[in-house]
Amino acid sequence: MSFTIKKEEKDGKPFLIFSGAIDEEADFPQFGPLGPEVIVDLKEVQSINSVGIRSWLIWFTDQKETLFIFEGCPKAVVMQMNMVEGFLPEKSKVHSMVMPFYCEKCDKEIDRLFEVGKQILIQGEDVEVKFDASQICEPGCEPELDINKAKYLRFLVRLEQQNQAA
């Protein structure tokens, strides 16, 4: 549960893996300037509370020159990306996020990692999500995306508009 940031390299770029609960115990290490572009993997982030939001904002504000590319954004973090304006750093992109599905037939919750620009397509103010239901659950099942798509992905529209204006 305790929060860690592991620093590795991926495709020649610094690659940070965030893991655990982002809360009052979370210690964000100081890496110094990270360079022009950094990939941040959020798949292992379990939760974030109000103090964690503050720590996140302080840490990312210190890295103003870096473009952050977020991968594997879990629901708990996406919720804050929508609720807290400025949660995403000024220079950021979202590469992929966890999309929650529910299959009523199997009474099963299923998470799938979808990529922006591949399964998640931003078209102006709208966002389309493309998926093959047969690939999500068992054959013959019709799992549904368990979100209000327009509102859940609202932050992506804002981010796209922000990046286009920059």
Binding site: S50, V51, R54, L57, E85
Partner: peptide
């Protein structure tokens, strides 16, 4: 003020947005 502007950044205690 918005959530980000309301956060107590200089506090070691709560963030003020919970």
């Amino acid at each position: 003020q918005g959530v980000k502007a309301s956060i107590r950044m200089d506090s070691k205690g709560g963030a003020g947005i919970g």
